[in-house]
Design a protein around this nucleic acid. Structure first.
Lengths: 228, 228
DNA sequence: TACCAGATTTTGACAAATCAAAATATCAGA
DNA sequence: TCTGATATTTTGATTTGTCAAAATCTGGTA
């Protein structure tokens, strides 16, 4: 009765694709298949089964979307994933660049009891080491609407709130350029033609990064009174 | 190429049956199947595949035994299992009576890197919360030869070194009667006819337990100078 | 030595998850 | 409206791990 690892991974992938595409869009099968590393036919077959179980709504040739039951399940998988990531960083002393792959396996193996212990031990945190929000045990998530380095005001100090990529390589890049959650940056210039963004970070250092990279760094204006 | 969860479980089961039966005995298929909760035919099929992979030696109608490659792999699974158990008790504050089932899942999901961190964090321990020895990263195990409450000298203080059962119920029973590793007991009387053993434990409390239970509690004579 | 009880193996079937490749649908553009 | 490029679905096969039940083997006993 409990969903297999595979089912959990499908739900998680649909969930994440949905939050990128927006709540009313259907996730195309090709995209889902690519995210999961399977051929499209496999995704079709699996999604039909998920639809049978009432976890997704599937429209042939259109795409797939989670039902509220599926959404809850997916959020709980994500909850486990993100709590584990934070645990691995805070308690086990691992690097935030490395924990994703480990959590990818552990998220299917931990019991609810252990997850709750971890949650408690970490003080019921709201976000994981990448700034991704941790869903509540009830399966609800609140996603703060942040600017990105592509949309935020120029010449204005911003604090990094979230880095939206799981790839070790990108995370290491972000780390090298002081673009980890909590750090302060300021966008100096955007060049649409060159597809680039010039930043001034901690210690007056300057860097120019591509627009694609810039869009993955979510920021918020530094509050007037830092210690309110 | 890396062994599936199932393969790991089969190797582990053969390993543990082997250490009970003795090094030169073949593990009968029926026993293996029972340990894994599958029907005998399933075990036969799987064992044949393991033999193909060179992890076990299989003799039809006789039984199965690990090759040295299989033994190493099995020991590493056991290493993960036992380090996780100890971690759950020492770091996560779980009860030694509960950690077995959790570890049963996690042992297949943790990476070598994480296991090494855990090992390091725990100070490279030699035994798990039940006193079971933790195999070395090279796959070698040294099993100290202890007496049991069924074989140790009478009227002589003994310290509990190991409790050889994974069942929560039995472990809770042991805990209730102060038969956890580190505690001191003394056998007052054995009654072969009644199949029972009378003990005097911590705080002069007396208990009578069955021979089967007594044989699961491994002990060692209290050394003359406790702090040598 | 012949037979029986119990353990073991074999056989056939099944579910989950996958792929390759053929068939089909969709949509944009002429 | 027809057509072609692209996405999606179907079909048939494969792998892994399992069960049920029939067939077979083994070891002890008469």
């Amino acid at each position: 009765m409990l969903p297999s690892h595979t089912v959990e991974n499908y739900l998680k992938a649909v969930f994440q694709a949905q939050t990128v595409l927006g709540p009313d869009e259907l996730v195309p099968m090709g995209q889902l298949a690519a995210a999961l590393g399977v051929v499209p036919g496999t995704a079709t077959a699996m999604v039909k089964a998920l639809a049978q179980s009432g976890l997704v709504r599937y429209e042939a040739y259109a795409g797939v979307r989670l039902t509220s039951a599926g959404e809850k399940l997916a959020a709980l998988v994500l909850r486990r994933h993100r709590l584990i990531e934070l645990f691995l960083v805070k308690v086990m002393g691992m690097s935030w660049t490395d924990v994703h792959d480990e959590a990818e396996h552990l998220e299917h193996a931990v019991s609810d009891r252990l997850i709750d212990r971890i949650d408690e031990m970490l003080g019921r945190p709201a976000v994981d080491p990448h700034g991704d929000p941790i869903p509540a045990p009830e399966g609800t998530v609140t996603v703060p609407a942040y600017d990105t380095l592509l949309t935020c005001p120029l010449h204005s100090p911003m604090v990094v709130k979230r880095v939206s990529d799981q790839e070790t390589d990108f995370l290491r890049f972000a780390e090298r350029h002081d673009l980890t959650p909590g750090q302060t940056v300021q966008v100096e210039e955007r060049d649409t033609a060159a597809d680039s963004v010039r930043l001034r970070g901690t210690g007056e250092r300057e860097v120019t990064i591509g627009a694609r990279a810039a869009s993955k760094v979510l920021v918020e204006a530094v509050p007037r009174r830092p210690q309110s």
